[in-house]
Structures are given as structure tokens and as C-alpha cells.
Simulated assay, not measured.
Amino acid sequence: MTKVAPLGIFGRIASQSAFAKNAEDLRRRVSMIPEGDRGRIAEYLRSGTPIIALMGFSEDILGNKFSRSGGTAIMSDGRFFWRLDAADYVEHYGVGLPEEFIAHGTARQWIAPVLSREKVIEVDDLLSELRRAGAL
């Protein structure tokens, strides 16, 4: 079975109101990604494959610089999973991400793979199992 890791604080399936409780944790990570790297990392995050399409509307909980329709949707590159609005937090604030993800993205030259239908189903099944177990 596929193993995908949560992308730090962004690897949680949560409503906007539940995610807003992470504001202080996000603030501690602001400016950890240099401005020159933010655009390509954000694009990678936006280019992931949608796994769970959620209709939620997310708003910037740090400074009202953005809002995103579907921002609570879960994306993946087959190795990690994250909320779609993670890209906005990286782009606008340079919110830090796990070193393992940075190394993974750098090795891929920040080009997200397109996941096959079978891989999407595997990742979705894993996330469903984790949700049932209360791990997400």
C-alpha cells in the first residue's frame, strides 16, 4: 500500500475553523522559506494532484492577504499530502515546510508528478483509513 506523509501543519484534513486554531504555529514558521524560493514551491504545491476535493472556502488566518475557494482540498504528489492553501501560506509568508519535503521537491526540480488514477485511489484509501483511525 502507498505511504504518504502529512506535509507538516498543512497535512491535516480540517475545516477552516478547525485549521484557524493553528495560527500561532503558522506564525512561528513565517519567513522560514526565502523569498526567492517561495514561487516555485508554491507552484509545486498547487500542481499536486487533488485527492479530496472539498468545497470549503479558506481565508488567510495570518494577515488577510488571500482567500481560496476550495482551499481545504487535499492535494498530493504521491509522497506527501497537504491542503491546497498551503501554497498561499508559502507564497505570501514563507511558512516553513519539513526538510524532507524540501529535499524531495528540490530533487524533483519542483516539478510535481501527475498521479495515475490508481495512485489517486491508493492515496485516497490511505487517507480514509487514517481519518477513521482518528490520525488526521
Rank of each mutant, 00 (worst) to 15 (best):
M1D: 13
K3R: 11
K3H: 12
K3T: 13
V4P: 00
A5F: 08
A5N: 10
A5S: 15
P6V: 07
L7P: 03
L7Y: 11
G8L: 11
I9V: 13
F10D: 03
F10G: 04
R12F: 14
R12P: 01
R12W: 07
I13F: 08
I13L: 12
A14Q: 15
S15A: 12
S15C: 06
Q16L: 11
Q16W: 15
F19I: 05
F19K: 02
A20P: 02
K21W: 02
N22T: 11
N22F: 14
R27F: 04
R27I: 08
R28H: 12
R29W: 05
R29A: 15
S31T: 06
M32R: 15
M32P: 02
E35A: 15
G36T: 13
D37Y: 12
D37T: 12
G39L: 13
G39S: 14
G39W: 05
G39H: 12
R40C: 09
I41T: 06
A42F: 07
E43K: 15
L45Y: 00
R46L: 04
R46F: 02
R46T: 04
S47N: 15
S47A: 14
S47K: 13
S47R: 12
P50I: 08
I51S: 01
L54C: 03
L54H: 06
M55T: 13
M55E: 11
M55Y: 07
F57H: 14
S58T: 15
S58E: 10
E59A: 07
E59D: 04
D60K: 06
I61C: 11
L62R: 07
L62T: 05
G63D: 09
N64Y: 10
F66A: 02
F66M: 06
S67Y: 05
R68T: 09
S69G: 07
G71K: 09
G71D: 11
T72K: 02
T72A: 13
M75D: 03
D77Y: 04
D77S: 08
G78R: 01
R79Y: 09
R79H: 12
F81H: 15
W82M: 09
W82L: 08
W82D: 03
R83E: 10
D85W: 15
A86Q: 06
A86N: 11
A87D: 01
D88P: 05
D88H: 12
E91L: 15
H92G: 02
Y93R: 10
G94K: 11
V95I: 14
G96F: 03
L97T: 07
L97H: 06
E99T: 13
E100G: 13
A103C: 04
H104R: 08
G105Y: 05
T106M: 06
T106N: 15
W110A: 03
I111W: 01
I111P: 00
I111G: 01
V114A: 13
V114W: 03
L115N: 00
S116A: 13
K119G: 02
K119Y: 00
K119V: 12
V120M: 09
V120C: 08
V120N: 00
E122G: 02
E122F: 05
V123E: 01
D124S: 11
L126I: 08
L126T: 02
L127H: 04
L127F: 10
R131Y: 07
R131G: 02
R131H: 09
A133L: 14
G134N: 06
G134Q: 04
G134S: 07
A135L: 15
